[in-house]
Design a protein around this nucleic acid. Structure first.
Lengths: 187, 187
DNA sequence: AATATCTTAGGACAACTGTCCTAGAGGGTT
DNA sequence: AACCCTCTAGGACAGTTGTCCTAAGATATT
């Protein structure tokens, strides 16, 4: 196992734990146990807990950018692409039901902690926002493309929050239908 | 200062701190400092941190029930009452911009912590949900009153989440307008 | 085979966590 | 005056936190 692989393992484990338990609750000991290394060994890869968080956010930024690029290639029309976004609520329903949206819950927590990495975490939101805005622009909504993008982003956040609070997947399906109908009026 | 008053002070301070910093981040030391008592003195009023949380949630339940009752009395029509709900986004915009929605952020955090008080915290959501459902029923939407109530609840959650992430009050006003228009179609 | 670099385990460190105990101050009732 | 009960301050307790050091092991290069 090379150094890079161990470092990546740490980031992956931290990514999951931050999502499932929250950043504040997750300790070095938790991550170390998940990876299978000792706590002391940590310092060689990351100086501080904030360093790990920064790496986790960078990983999420990369993964999100890749996913959006994939959607861009795979779909023929802007409305199809927007539907891809809506459907991640279904794709990730099991985890959303348990932990909410990884983007929204992290930014919310970092906001309360007044954490310096909050702006970086918000970049993930901005990736989605800008990409959605592009799609609405392509649909011809030049006046309010950003407004529509943020609106859709907020709707998906709300759905994730309630689905998680009530552990209710049925609500998730229902709201995805409502969102698809909403989208139809902007074709 | 009587005992009851000190206990209430603790609950009030914890209420604010749990909202502003989160439950996990807030320590006994934080609360003690906010109230102006020593940490050791705590045990006389609350046995555990969970006890404080339970009291905070009960306080929020009472306050929410009172507020809903007030709206019920003060407004003449169901749609006016629903507008009261929508407008709390404006009323509390300063705090929402900083800390998000107190109900949504707490249930999200407790969900990740798998905290036994999660169900109690969800009761606050249920108060709103049931009350909104009543209003939609009164408007004649017998088939989908609950669906509409949950939908509106989710929308307001999403607005709060994004307004907090982007520290954007303008978005909040804009989405309140959108929600008011949405409501108009159900009069 | 010898050397240099990278990676690891183990533990030390002070600070903080939630919890709990004890001694005494304060006020009211007999 | 003597008593009781409520409340408080101060500190003890074991455990955990993030951080950091050191010594040894592993790996690669010469």
């Amino acid at each position: 196992m090379s150094s890079k692989s161990t470092k990546e393992s740490i980031i992956d484990a931290a990514d999951q734990l931050f999502y499932q338990q929250g950043y504040e609750k997750t300790s070095f000991a938790d991550i170390a146990q998940a990876v299978g290394i000792t706590r002391g060994n940590f310092y060689h890869h990351f100086k501080t807990k904030d360093d790990i968080l920064a790496s986790v956010i960078n990983l999420r930024l990369e993964n999100t950018a890749d996913m959006l690029e994939q959607w861009q290639e795979d779909s023929q029309s802007p409305s199809e692409r927007i539907e891809c976004f809506i459907k991640i609520l279904i794709m990730n329903r099991a985890k959303i039901r348990l932990y909410g949206c990884p983007v929204g819950t992290l930014t919310t927590e970092l906001g309360k902690l007044e954490h310096p990495q909050l702006n970086n975490a918000n970049q993930v939101f901005l990736l989605f926002s800008d990409w959605l805005e592009q799609q609405f622009l392509a649909l011809g909504h030049t006046q309010n493309a950003r407004e529509l993008a943020r609106h859709l982003l907020a709707r998906s956040q709300g759905v994730a929050t309630l689905a998680s609070a009530f552990h209710d997947e049925a609500f998730l399906y229902q709201e995805v239908d409502t969102l698809t109908e909403w989208l139809a009026q902007y074709h």
